[in-house]
Amino acid sequence: MEMTGAVLALIGSIIFFLSALGLIRMPDLYNRIQTGTKATTLGTIILSIGLCLIHPEWTGKLVILILFIVLTNPISSHVVARGAHYSGQEMTDKTVGDALTEEDKDKEGTP
């Protein structure tokens, strides 16, 4: 049991490392949010499940920690993305479409 938990914790930390790598490699802010702040959610879930297996008496608090991460993480990345868009953050050259900017232009065009 302890062994399984330790291996799960190792898998979680490898996911952390890959998302840190994504933060370095991605070309613009939106893609960094994709790989950075959200891939860590799965890492935290796996690592906490691993620790639940090692210490069954900690399960209650670790479940609260998982719920907390799952509820707050999308909100913070959504707020950062929206702030980036409305403060005029550039998108990478590879971008193939931007419906939100077009929508905003339509609104301004029709009084």
């Binding site: 840190a20 802010l29 960094r32 950075g36 860590t40 935290t44 690592l47 920690l65 991460i69 950062v80």
Partner: peptide, 19 residues
């Protein structure tokens, strides 16, 4: 905002390190 994203990610990893 790039720094904010980096800070956020580092914070989540720090939570797991503390656990």
């Amino acid at each position: 905002l790039d720094r904010v994203v980096a800070f956020d990610t580092a914070g989540i990893i720090a939570i797991s390190v503390i656990v």
